[in-house]
Design a protein around this nucleic acid. Structure first.
Length: 525
RNA sequence: GGGAUCGUAGCUCAGUCGGUAGAGCAACGGACUUUUAAUCCGUAGGUCCUGGGUUCGAGCCCCAGCGAUCCCA
């Protein structure tokens, strides 16, 4: 070692210490930023090879080790001495990962490394790796990325470990990691520095990997049923298809206002006019509204359209999408939700809007005067408002939050559904359902309105007491023209992917399942 | 938009009545070749979110701002 005085580095910050080691790594002739590292085995796969570790007696007899569960109670050292003289032998392996724990016993170090399939302990001895490699090992810090060549064996206590023959330096981490086993707790920092959250907080990476599996599963389910995925425009000249305030932007060359899309609906329906009989899009939509545990301004939406179907075919499809997604993450039909549970066994419960309204309010949904009185007792502004708008306010307040589900709420008041086909025998009721789970709206589906004249009329009708922002009815002449060219009768379905992921991963806030949720810009930057 | 709570070492958190800024982990020096959040001895480390105010004196009290979390609209 050097002849530096004992307290040479006293008082240096954790970061300065890491920079000093970085320089030392360079001085030792290594690249602190590493290079390609071929032929490694994922740690999960290495762990699966534990059974290949044998105890070999002096006469060459190979004996299987006791099961992992027995090793917890019986020290391996004691077991080995009962078998007779011999030594442990296992496969030669190469791994790479981040240093997540470090126990320094002087001339012997135990280093736990982690890749995205698991963790494993490294047994690193000065004598075993040689003087040159040992000097490099003195430059390791928590968070560094290293590679290792060695034999897979077990320690005396039975811990599966790679016994290092050579350590390769792959990348220095200059920022000190958060407290071990505690990680980052400040939700703001966890979101701003998602890389740290992912690298160090328990379960975060798995949750986002589950999100990917769910999204893949949704696509697989639809593709198995011959739906094709398309990519519609995200810049719209009319922000239609939903009731929401859009983000507004501007195209310079055309000198025109454009809106970030708030829904996928109207372009997918245009495609059905064009003969694309089963289409879907799974993509981002943008709504310029408040941020809450259930709302991020940009979020992922699935919309599916099936020619010659109706809203009941969409119920079956919804159940298939969700059941398959649960399987894809290896979960069971009964999932935890905070201190409650969700039972996703199919078929989901189905109840009509009016039925639920009556149950939860005790008011006859057909009696507009009674509903109005009830609403004003709840403190709603009722004067000059359309009866169905009033009813809808009450429904949101008294019914939605009380729904545990999963439950399909069916048959909505037609007047608040300007894009939905009416029931043949009752034009006041729309063939629509919404799926609710623990008060959250997860899916929304219609038998699609394909009558161009009625569509035009509904676009022209602004319900009393409903602002343009609250209405789905935004005149879109081109869409009406499309319908005049023949859109088949169809079922359409929208699923909020973020909410589905929340429910399946027991995440109470959308910010835990969106990698980079919108945050205010950091001050000082 | 309104209300409540919070912001202290790299991380997690204490901080009493307004009176010299604390711990654990991480870091640094030392001991240890079978440890499991290793252990033991020692050392260093602070823009107490920002700006004002009250006070002999403010991490603490008051005002404003910034940021966050939760609830409500």
């Amino acid at each position: 070692m050097t002849d530096a005085s004992p307290n040479d580095h006293q008082g240096e910050s954790p970061e300065a210490s890491r920079r000093r080691k970085l320089d030392q790594i360079i001085a030792l002739g290594h690249d602190p930023w590493g290079h390609r590292f071929d032929n490694r085995t994922m740690i999960g796969d290495i762990r699966a090879r534990a059974t290949e570790v044998k105890y070999v007696l002096e006469d060459g007899t190979e004996i299987d080790l006791p099961a992992e569960s027995e090793l917890e109670t019986t020290p391996l050292k004691q077991w080995a001495s009962e078998q007779g003289k011999g030594k442990l032998n296992g496969p030669q392996v190469r791994a790479a990962g981040r240093i997540v724990l470090h126990r320094d016993k002087g001339k012997l170090q135990f280093i736990d490394i982690e890749d995205w399939t698991g963790k494993i302990q490294l047994f690193v001895g000065q004598k075993q790796v040689g003087e040159e490699n040992w000097e490099l090992i003195q430059c390791l810090d928590l968070g560094d990325l290293i590679g290792i060549d060695g034999m897979l064996r077990r320690t005396q206590t039975g811990e599966l470990s790679i016994f290092a023959e050579k350590i390769h330096f792959l990348t220095k981490t200059l920022d000190p990691p958060p407290a071990k086993h505690v990680g980052l707790t400040d939700p703001e920092v966890r979101q701003r520095k998602r890389y740290v959250d992912l690298a160090w907080n328990e379960g975060v990476r798995d949750r986002f990997l589950d999100r990917s599996r769910i999204v893949k599963s949704v696509r697989d389910t639809l593709q198995k049923q011959d739906f094709v995925e398309i990519e519609g425009p995200t810049l719209h000249s009319i922000a239609g298809g939903a009731a929401a305030r859009p983000f507004i932007t501007h195209h310079n060359a055309l000198d025109m206002e454009l809106y970030m899309r708030i829904a996928l609906e109207l372009h997918l329906k245009r495609l059905m006019v064009g003969g694309m009989e089963r289409v879907f899009e799974l993509g981002r939509v943008y709504r310029n509204e408040g941020i809450s545990p259930k709302h991020n301004p940009e979020f992922s939406m699935l919309e599916v359209y099936q020619a010659y179907g109706d809203y009941e075919s969409m119920m079956d499809l919804t159940e298939a999408v969700i059941s398959d997604a649960i399987q894809a993450i290896g979960a069971s039909e009964t999932l935890p939700w905070g201190d409650k549970e969700i039972n996703f066994s199919t078929p989901f419960e189905r109840k009509t809007y009016d039925e639920l309204f009556r149950t939860h309010t005790g008011v006859d949904p057909q009696d507009a005067a009674a509903v109005k009185t009830y609403a004003s007792e709840l403190g709603f502004d009722v004067e000059g408002r359309h009866p169905d708008v009033i009813k809808s306010d009450v429904f949101e307040e008294k019914v939605e939050d009380a729904l545990v589900g999963p439950i399909f709420v069916t048959d909505y008041p037609a007047s608040i559904c300007p894009l939905t086909k009416r029931k043949t025998d009752n034009p006041d009721v729309a063939e629509r359902f919404e799926l609710f789970v623990h008060g959250m709206e997860v899916a929304n589906a219609y038998t699609e309105l394909n009558d161009p004249d009625l569509q035009q009329k509904l676009f022209e009708t602004q319900l009393d007491g409903m602002s343009e922002e609250d209405s789905m009815a935004k005149m879109d002449h081109d869409f009406v023209t499309a319908l005049r060219n023949g859109m088949p009768p169809a079922g359409g379905l929208g699923i909020g992917i973020d909410r589905l992921v929340m429910l399946l991963t027991n995440s109470q806030t959308i910010r835990d399942i969106v990698l980079f949720p919108l945050l205010r810009a950091e001050s000082g930057n």
